[in-house]
């Protein structure tokens, strides 16, 4: 029974996440960028833009220039999240890939740095007048959601172990469209439920910054407007 409920939930969440993201990315990609608006100084070549983007998404370069505290907390959170996600791959693969084994110890403790980052961001949202001013309830809820996921996850790892072997076989089953059973562990229920919620709000919330950053014209355009003519289809129509 429990297994079926969560199976449905996860199929739904995965569908919403994938469908939502594909539609958004497709929309972004299809909308014309009529004028060249890279924030200068911008790279003169595609390779240069590629590296600019790598620096943005791997090191949060602009944020670093902007505000060291937000950078510290934001970067810590995101990188920890990647480690944690990578570690979780072990529950979806059999046999477990070598590099996932390698990441395992880092991914485990990254739960704490992740919480630290979230706590820092949240504290700023409450304490710093300017950031409090621009925050909506959804901004706090998003932090609460992530915090809930991190805490419930860490609980199962460090406080009250869940039957992880059963969880893994449930997940492997789901991937082969076989619905198995889940251990009736409340912490696990909370953890999985929150993750499913996160997946579902992804395409309708500010989490769209993840695909958005790659489509941001101020960051992804090459500075070559004197060398190459750029005309968007709709503005070409105005030309005749």
């Amino acid at each position: 029974m429990l297994g079926t409920v969560y199976a449905v939930l996860f199929y739904a969440a995965t569908a919403v996440l994938l469908f939502g993201l594909v539609v958004k990315a497709w929309t972004y990609g299809r909308i014309p960028a009529p004028l060249r608006i890279p924030t200068a100084p911008a790279p003169k070549t595609r390779a240069g833009v590629f590296w600019r983007m790598v620096r943005e998404v791997a090191f949060f370069e602009s944020l670093y220039k902007s505000n060291k505290w937000i950078w510290l907390f934001g970067w810590t959170f995101h990188m920890s999240l990647w480690l944690v996600l990578a570690r979780h791959l072990r529950y979806f693969t059999q046999p477990v890939w070598g590099w996932v084994e390698l990441v395992q110890p880092f991914g485990t403790y990254a739960a704490f740095t992740m919480m630290l980052g979230l706590a820092g961001l949240w504290a700023r949202r409450v304490v710093v007048e300017r950031i409090r001013y621009i925050s909506s309830p959804s901004d706090h809820l998003m932090l609460a959601l992530l915090f809930g996921i991190a805490v419930s996850g860490a609980m199962m790892r460090f406080v009250a172990h869940t039957d992880i072997v059963a969880v893994k076989s449930f997940m492997l089953g789901l991937m082969r469209f076989r619905i198995g059973d889940l251990p009736p562990d409340p912490t696990l229920m909370v953890h999985l439920f929150l993750v499913a919620v996160l997946m579902m709000v992804f395409p309708v919330s500010k989490l769209l910054h993840a695909p958005g950053v790659f489509f941001s014209p101020s960051r992804n355009q090459v500075d070559n407007s004197r060398e190459k003519r750029h005309v968007a289809p709709w503005s070409a129509k105005l030309e005749s």
Binding site: Y28, A33, L63, I70, S216
Partner: peptide, 14 residues
């Protein structure tokens, strides 16, 4: 594109 991406992507980081 800028209009839609910018309106969607802000995370209110401050």
């Amino acid at each position: 594109r800028a209009f839609q991406v910018y309106l969607d992507a802000c995370v209110k980081c401050g």
